[in-house]
Design a protein around this nucleic acid. Sequence first.
DNA 1: GCGATGATTTTGACATGTCAAAATCCTAAA
DNA 2: TTTAGGATTTTGACATGTCAAAATCATCGC
Lengths: 224, 224
Amino acid sequence: MTTSTVEDYLKCIYQAEQRSSGLISTGQIASALQVAPGTATAMMKTLADSGLITYEPYNGVRLTGAGSKLAAHVLRRHRVVELFLVEVMGMSWSEVHGDAEILEHAVSDRLLDRMDDMLGKPSVDPHGDPIPSPRGVLREKEYPTLLTCPLRASLRVARVTDQSAEFLKLLERHGVMPGNAIEVESREEAADTVTVKPSGGKAFTLGCRAAGAVQVEPNSGKQA
Amino acid sequence: MTTSTVEDYLKCIYQAEQRSSGLISTGQIASALQVAPGTATAMMKTLADSGLITYEPYNGVRLTGAGSKLAAHVLRRHRVVELFLVEVMGMSWSEVHGDAEILEHAVSDRLLDRMDDMLGKPSVDPHGDPIPSPRGVLREKEYPTLLTCPLRASLRVARVTDQSAEFLKLLERHGVMPGNAIEVESREEAADTVTVKPSGGKAFTLGCRAAGAVQVEPNSGKQA
DNA sequence: GCGATGATTTTGACATGTCAAAATCCTAAA
DNA sequence: TTTAGGATTTTGACATGTCAAAATCATCGC
């Protein structure tokens, strides 16, 4: 039986593998999950014994096929649930992450299928994060961020890669959400800021760390 | 922190207290939750230490105010979730119990409130079980069952007190669900059976144990 | 009043997941 | 090549929740 703790570790490793290639270190996992280093090491042995990861002591960890599939399913549950909470339950995208973090371990396959149907088999969640397919395949697209995109061009927000409720609320107030049109007015290297103008809204300024969490694509005119 | 195991024990004691008055025995709790007797005893000490029950060794257990309130909240979550799964998610009343058993420990207050609103602050779940109020008050009504109600009278199904999926599916096939009209055609003491005629359906026969799980009220003509 | 019987509690053990701190390993710099 | 420093693993401990089996209790029937 796969416990919800195991699911959390797998999801964490899976997402680390998306970002970087090669082995994932136990220290990385420990700090991501906020547990002591030794705790992560112990769990790596457990996961390796279950055939969910390959573990090279002192080197790091990699998901096996089985582990990867399981992790993708957890991530799928998380993201479908988030979208459900926003679209069907009318919750704000800034407050659904915590709920989804719990529900991703509690939702049955049957229920997940119903949600997926009601949502029309969606491919991205409210933050623009792609939803793994039922078979466990995840297709990540590469987008420029507010730090790397062209200035004064018409853009569409594609994805926001920071789940902090306060940050999301701020973006929401300014209308910076996936699908919406914006443009970057200016970047001030010295001040470490980027100034963004939402279409039909007032320009505002973000620090570079925050700006790096907003991914955009050229506004081709399609999409609402 | 109240774990989901603790919630299960509290809910179990709460429901036992609804049925019988006086102390609830640890043996009763153990068999209801399918754990060894010693396990239940150990948990009773834990609950007593947390001030959720009063525990008289060898005699039994009773919920304190705090315990009762917590248990009512768990039951409320369970029943609101069940209704949500049927009304919003379109699941069958015969298959929601298992999902609700898990989700009752995973749903946040915020999410529960949203469900409650979407459902119009309902007072009973799909099986006719009353839903505790947000403040933790439960109002149980007494109904006759198919074993005790008048013969050949127009009745309305009020409540079904057996969560077995197979049983519920059978009732559903015959249209015996809360709100629907039925009458009892006959009782055969010798054969241990009751024959029921759903309005607009074919008569069928239940054993007395099953019939005792169907509660009815006189059909006053109101309700669909 | 005294057992026998059935329920309850105790005991010792195990599985999971966690931590702090000690021991070990790896690597990069001198 | 050697070693210092940072990361990783090991160790011993704890908290929860569980079981089987032994010990204990309570009460009913004689």
